[in-house]
Design a protein around this nucleic acid. Structure first.
Length: 357
DNA sequence: AATGCGTACAACCGCGAAATT
DNA sequence: TAATTTCGCGGTTGTACGCAT
């Protein structure tokens, strides 16, 4: 079977968008939603193909896009998520509020990839090239990689579940409200009550193998509320949350440029007991009142890259329903491993003589 | 001032998956 | 169930811009 072109190629404009075209596209989507991208250009009076319109909207015109410099926390998140997920830019972007996959991809290719390579870190494998890291770092790398692989499985499953939920919710929405709501698929429909339960259900209904060879966690509904993952699409921020995130982001961008891990206490301004309780009880976010970059999975990463610290998130007083793997050990090794990488990458020193950490 | 080079980023292309007919 | 359409993703390209020579 042949594949038809996305649109008639003759007579359609290509290349940079003009302000007039942007205005037309914006006005049309604000009024009608995008609906079918294929049909949009003619309806909006644009000499563009639908694909071009969609790209322009999702990567540039969409109102929930944060443009400008990436913060250090965002850089860390990208690096760590890339180590986990590879070149799955859309998946990575879901953990970076208001950033598009294209933007993340470009930033990786033009900044982070080169910086890693320059510091002797393979940007593909995230491992040291020619023993750039110290001798024990190789061991750390292996252990961390194993743990990250484990986490990546979970994250992949979660992303699949989120996508599934978004589709199902969209279908339900479409069935009940035909007009404009239907035409906003760029914003995944907000999940209602107890998103973690929903994700669990989706996982179960999708028959995702929770007991895969590398998965050592088992669930019951009773402990599902302690899942660490939030529905962190980044597109669901309320205005107040968005403002809070922006404020926090602005603060972070003004900070000293040394990469370092921020403790939960630093971020939350809580004492350790409060923090612990917050982390165990709060299924939504550990960034107060937000589902921002600190939330869920990304939050776990940024929190000292402490992939082993899952007991805090999963809850230890859960009648043993949540079992910790024996491989979940070595907090400090993992933390130090990422610290090594971040400090190297952040360092402006030439990498001629790799630092022995 | 002109030219060349490197960088950053917007935009395009082709493919695969999902949805629809 | 097969054919077709639509959408989203990741890789790549094109171009504007800044800087050095």
């Amino acid at each position: 079977m042949g594949r038809s072109p996305c649109c008639e190629k003759i007579g359609l404009k290509k290349g940079p968008w003009t302000p007039e075209e942007d205005q037309k596209l914006l006005a049309y989507i604000e009024e009608h939603g995008h609906g079918s991208w294929r049909a949009l250009p003619s309806k909006a009076g644009l000499q563009r193909c639908g694909k071009s319109c969609r790209l322009r909207w999702t990567n540039y015109l969409r109102p929930d896009i944060k443009r400008g410099k990436f913060s250090l926390q965002e850089e860390q998140a990208i690096i760590q998520l890339h180590a986990l997920l590879g070149n799955r830019w859309s998946a990575i972007a879901t953990h970076l509020p208001k950033r598009t996959d294209n933007e993340v991809k470009n930033y990786w290719n033009t900044h982070l990839k080169k910086r890693l390579a320059k510091k002797g870190i393979d940007p593909v494998t995230h491992k040291a090239i020619n023993g750039t890291l110290n001798s024990t770092a190789g061991d750390k790398s292996a252990k961390v990689t194993a743990s990250l692989s484990h986490m990546a499985q979970w994250e992949s499953a979660r992303l699949e579940a989120e996508a599934r939920l978004a589709r199902e919710s969209k279908m339900r929405t479409a069935a009940s409200t035909p007009s404009k709501l239907q035409a906003q698929p760029t914003n995944p429909p907000a999940l209602t009550s107890s998103p973690c339960f929903d994700v669990l259900h989706a996982w179960q209904s999708a028959k995702i193998d929770l007991e895969s060879p590398t998965s050592t966690l088992t669930f019951t509904r009773s402990n599902a509320g302690m899942l660490p993952f939030s529905r962190n699409t980044g597109l669901e921020l309320s205005e107040s949350n968005s403002a809070m995130w922006q404020q926090r982001s602005d603060e972070l961008e003004g900070e000293e440029s040394e990469w370092k891990f921020m403790s939960k206490q630093q971020l939350l301004g809580l004492d350790s007991k409060e923090t612990e309780e917050h982390f165990i009880c709060c299924e939504e976010s550990w960034f107060p009142g937000t589902t921002s970059i600190g939330a869920g999975f990304t939050g776990m990463l940024l929190h000292g890259s402490n992939v082993h610290d899952t007991s805090k998130y999963w809850g230890e007083s859960n009648n043993g329903k949540v079992e910790q793997s024996s491989q979940l050990s070595g907090d400090e090794e993992s933390k130090n491993y990422w610290n090594d990488i971040f400090s190297m990458v952040n360092s402006e020193q030439p990498s001629q003589s790799p630092p022995l950490l």
